[in-house]
Structures are given as C-alpha cells and as structure tokens.
Design a binder for these strands. Sequence first.
DNA 1: ATCAACGTTCCAGTACGGTGGAAGGTCAAG
DNA 2: CTTGACCTTCCACCGTACTGGAACGTTGAT
Lengths: 129, 129
Amino acid sequence: MRIGELANATGTTTKTLRFYESAGLMPIPPRTSSGYRDYPSDTVHRIGFIRRGQSAGLTLAQIGEILHNRDGGNAPCAHVQFLLSGRLKELDDQIADLLALRETVQSLHSVSLTVEPAACAPNQVCQYI
Amino acid sequence: MRIGELANATGTTTKTLRFYESAGLMPIPPRTSSGYRDYPSDTVHRIGFIRRGQSAGLTLAQIGEILHNRDGGNAPCAHVQFLLSGRLKELDDQIADLLALRETVQSLHSVSLTVEPAACAPNQVCQYI
DNA sequence: ATCAACGTTCCAGTACGGTGGAAGGTCAAG
DNA sequence: CTTGACCTTCCACCGTACTGGAACGTTGAT
C-alpha cells in the first residue's frame, strides 16, 4: 500500500508517516519502480501501536525502543512493564504537582475576587500575585 | 544596578533577563555611558512578579499582558482575574485528563504483570498495548 | 600594564512532535 | 495531451522558555 492509503487507514498524514520513518520508528519500506513507498499491509498495526503508545503518554523515543526490541526478535514485555511503571510514577508526580498548583491558583483567584482595584499600590504590579 | 546584580538579587541569570527584555516583559532600561544596562532598583519587584506568575502557571505572554496593562496605567485586576480563572479551568481539565490517563496506564501495567511473554503473538507488537 | 570578572551583540541550538511549502516526478482518467 | 491527484526530497518553521558560545568592549584591582 502507498503512503496516502496508509495515512488514511490509520488516521494520520503522509507527513507524519515520513516523520516517523525519519525518527526511526518505521522499518524502511520497499519502493515501487517509480520510487513510491510500498508498505506491507500489517504496517497498519504498527502505526496503531504507535498511536496507542502515545495515548498512554509514552514518548516516540520510548515507543521506538519497544519497537526496536520487537524488531530485534525480543519480546519487549519486560521493557514495556518498565516503561509503564515509570510512566505511572511520572503521572502520579504530575498529578500531585497540578493539584498543588490548583490550590495556589485557586487561592489567588479567590483573593482577586475580594480585592478592590483602588487598593492597588502603585509601586507593585499586582497585590495578589 | 547592573544586569548581574539584578540577576543575583532575583535568582535568575543575565541571559534570562536579556531574554525577558527581548520578549517585551521588561521596560527598556537606561544605559550607562559605556553601554551597560542600568536598572532602577524596583525592577527587582517586576522580576519577582514574573516569577510568581510563572509559579502560578501563567505563560510569559500572559504575564506580559498584565505588565503592559500596568505599564499603561490601568489596574490589571480584572484581567488577572480572567487569566486566573482561565488557568483554573485549564488545570481542572489537565488534572482530569491525567487521572483518566493514569487509569489507562495502570490497567495496562496490571495486565502486563500477569501476561506470559511466550503468549506474545508474532504478528503484533505487544499484546497489551 | 595586565588580568579577571563583568558587560555587549548576535546567531544557533535545546526538547517535542510534528507542519508548511517549494520544486519536481508519476499515474490514471478523460 | 492535459489535468489533477498523488508521490518524492529537502529545508524551514511552529511554540515555549530559555541556554551556549563566539567575538569583542569595560571596569576595577593589582
């Protein structure tokens, strides 16, 4: 299948697919006599894996590692477990950070609602930030 | 005060201060006869405001808007309220997204712990992603 | 006079995941 | 034979907030 078909079948764009190739996520596809990329049909699954990995918050670099393991004939299971547990920890940290930030912003916002603009001191930018 | 002093006093770097200037966050400072930037001492407060705004998750562009209001003689209170409430909504969305993602990753990870590598089908990349 | 420590400008690069566009080649239909 | 849709490569750019480094000028102490 040609690159446009693959893009359609996977909900991506030809630009993105070439970018994935340049990023080392795709095996180099064979070419037709005229130089067009000619993908095997199971490439659809590979793209699907890439998109699901992204949905799980993995970076393209991490997804690439998994694919390279797989391409090298190794079952990437252990590595995937490792990446997922790392991701889980990152998520917990990110969520905790955002919750703390939410508290801060919330209290700034509350204060901003009770303050009179006329009370602004001229020598500071904003009395509640 | 010179740029290095200001950087020291605010915990930033001279690079960052020049970058803020180029980004339009700083009023153009006067120069000494030899061309050095010569900041009024209350610039410290302005940098402090910028850093606190960043801590609240505002972008430099948003902080710039507030500063421009202030520099233009307007009390930026209403605008700050607007930005803070927008930020609050964004935070809620981000937190909700991350919590949902955490659920997804958590369940993928749980499955990954119970699966036997030998069960991997050769025609797919990974059976649990 | 010399030296370090400061200052200046300007250009380029970082990470991330692409997107835009130019300049050209190919293919199938009408 | 032409048209339009597809494909190719390559280079540049998006946003965000800086950071690094080159090449050169200034200041203050010794």
